[in-house]
Amino acid sequence: MTGEQGIVHPAFADAARAAAKRAMRRGSVTPEQAELVYTAAENGLTLGVRVESTTRNLVREARHDGADDAVLVGIVDVFCQSIEGLPLREAADHGTIHALDRLREDRPTSVVAGILTPRSAGSAFGVCDRLIRRILADHETATKAKPTDNFWIPALSKAWRGQSADQRLATLQPLIEIFRTERQLEAEDFYLAEIEKTQRIIVGFGPRIGVDKKPPLLREFERQIRKITGDRLEVYMEEMKDDNALRRLGPTEPAGDVS
C-alpha cells in the first residue's frame, strides 16, 4: 500500500517555499563531546542529528544537506526545527506530524477531504520519515537499546505546575474573555467552571449556545489556550451522570418486552 501524493500537497507548497527562503537548518551537525551524531541519506538528501547520550536521547541538533528542490528544502528544514528538543523515538514516530502541524499553522484544518497524515500531505514527509527512522535504528544498534513503546508527552511548564487551581483559573480568565469577545459571546454563554488534575479545563455553556456550536467552540478554545500558554491543556465539559437508575429502563423511552 502506498498512498503518497506528490512531493507536497498543494496547500502546503507556498508555506514550504517560504520556509526554504528562511531555511535555518541547512548544513551538517556540529559534533559535541559525549553526544552521538548520526546521518542518513536518500537520493542526495542527507539528514544529520546530534543526540544527547543520556537516557532521554533528546535530539540536540538536526541539519539537512543536499536537497535541490525548494519545496523539499522547506519541508526538511521545518522537519529539522520540529524534532529538535524531542526524544529521538518521538522524532521518528511523530516528527513529520509535528512538522505538518507547524506548516499548517493558521491554515484551514481540512486541506485534504479526509484525514491529513504525513502520507496524504506529500512524499517529502515520507522521505523525512525514512531518514529519521533509519537514524533511530542506527542509534538502537549503537547503544544496544531495545525498541520500546513511546509514552512521551510534552511536560507542562514549571510556571503552570507551580500555580494553584485558583491561580490557573485567573490565568485563563482573560483568555476566555478575549475568546468570547472575538466571537460575540456573553459571559454566561461560555464560562470556566473548574480545573481538574492540573491540565483539564472544565467549561460550561449557557442555554443560548446550540448543541452543534459547542464542539467546534471547545476545540477552538483548547487550541487558543494551548497556543497562548504553551501548555498542553485539555478542555472538557462537566460529566453527565447516568440517567438509568441501576441501568434499568429509562422513564422516557418506550419499553420492549421485558416480562
Binding site: T2, G3, Q5, V112, A113, G114, I115, T117, R119, A121
Partner: peptide
C-alpha cells in the same frame, strides 16, 4: 486494503 489506501490518500 482498498479502504486503507483511500484513507492514506486523504480521501473521505
Amino acid at each position: 486494503q482498498d479502504r486503507v489506501r483511500a484513507w492514506e490518500r486523504g480521501e473521505r
